[in-house]
Design a binder for these strands. Structure first.
Lengths: 133, 133
DNA sequence: CTTGAATCTGTAGTTGCTACAGGGTTTATC
DNA sequence: GATAAACCCTGTAGCAACTACAGATTCAAG
């Protein structure tokens, strides 16, 4: 049985975030002391670790909710879990390609500028142009 | 002189977004008709194109504000502009490397799962583990 | 029993928009 | 000149995923 502060330290998750997760139904309401302080058991800790790890891996809270529903339902299959994961991997792939394109464009633009103390800049000029290509 | 709808069509920027940009000081307040409708001139259009292009290239509104201040000041130098751009490129680089790491980890985890109809999944197991390495 | 640390609830802020509601204005048509 | 349709106005609330308070209460140590 640990307090919210203990849980926070164990998981590296902010106290306010823990309460937030409870509020939006990601974490279950824990029992309380007489005075109203939250007390967590092993199951809660496990669940929060799951949530944190999922978030670290870029799953949205909504995806985390889906994963938790599967786990909670107890009769989830690999197929379902893998589907969520693969969809997420697709998102990442898209983001990567978007970012790479961005980087290339920006590098091209930036390379035209010598960064001198001239009062005219090819970067600014480029920003005043609508998208080419 | 175009109305806000015309400006929206010309730039591809939502009407509410245009008003939002005005509210937060990114766009200048345009003159109005007697009835209070906004009327934009060439300068406004140019400025909005600049903002849109900058946003497309991933600059935050705060960075856009910085760039606009430089442009407005009229005595900006290449050095200043390039500094903003290079900082932004660093951000992108970091995001890219974070995303690539994420992708790798997630792929590793996902590859251990065959997606069958088994009621036990290595992905779920991995999510219950704290971060390794 | 007192102090100080921890916790409580509730609300507001962040970024960059988007989506209304409930009005007023402009323009086209008759 | 009336009317309708299309447009525009302000103001507010919502999204994700937290974070940061304020002001009150409770807990643990000495």
């Amino acid at each position: 049985m640990v307090t919210i502060g203990g849980l926070s330290k164990q998981t590296g998750c902010n106290i306010e975030t823990i309460r937030y997760y409870e509020r939006i139904g990601i974490l279950l309401k824990p029992p309380r002391t007489e005075g109203g302080h939250r007390l967590y058991e092993r199951e809660h800790i496990k669940r929060l670790v799951f949530v944190r790890r999922s978030r670290e891996l870029g799953f949205s809270l909504d995806e985390v909710r889906t994963l938790l529903r599967l786990v909670d339902g107890k009769r989830y299959t690999c197929r379902e879990v893998k589907a969520v994961t693969e969809r997420h991997l697709e998102d990442i792939k898209k983001k990567l390609s978007d970012l790479r394109r961005l980087q290339k464009t920006l590098r091209d633009i930036s390379s035209q500028c010598e960064g001198g103390s001239v009062p005219d800049c090819p970067i600014i000029d480029a920003l005043f142009e609508e998208k080419r290509q």
